[in-house]
């Protein structure tokens, strides 16, 4: 397991093709994740993500067609709160950590795009 995971060379994981992450793809991901990455980071991350994905893609080797996915570690359902108002934060507390505030509101830079 260790040697396999350590293997940073070309992918030798049998039939499974692992996509190579390009610089462009890293740039796209950074855009989705709102990270203004630098040019040199693009290269570094492209290389590192490739190695990591190469390794983690092993999960694909497990034939798991009829295996249900697990999203939660505890098998609990129906956890609800009663519809009763609870004290929250005061306006001062809410705004205390704000980088900027105005008229008791959070002041943010102008927004370019319409709401999704």
């Amino acid at each position: 397991m260790l040697d396999r995971a350590r293997d940073t060379g070309k992918n030798d994981q049998g039939a499974r093709a692992v996509p190579t992450i390009s610089r462009d793809e890293v740039a796209h991901l950074a855009g989705l994740a709102r990270l203004a990455v630098t040019e040199s980071e693009l290269d570094t991350f492209a290389g590192q993500l490739d190695v990591i994905l190469d390794s983690v893609a092993r999960v694909g080797e497990v034939a798991a067609e009829d295996i249900p996915p697990t999203s939660h570690a505890v098998p609990v359902t129906n956890v609800f709160r009663s519809d009763v108002v609870r004290p929250g934060l005061s306006q001062e507390q809410a705004l205390a950590g704000a980088p900027a505030a105005e008229e008791n509101r959070f002041r943010v830079p102008r927004i370019l795009n319409e709401e999704a």
Binding site: R105, F106, R107, V108, R110, I111
Partner: peptide, 10 residues
């Protein structure tokens, strides 16, 4: 939203 200088959030 267009032409606004900044935005205040509630």
């Amino acid at each position: 939203i267009h032409g606004a200088e900044h935005t205040l959030m509630d």
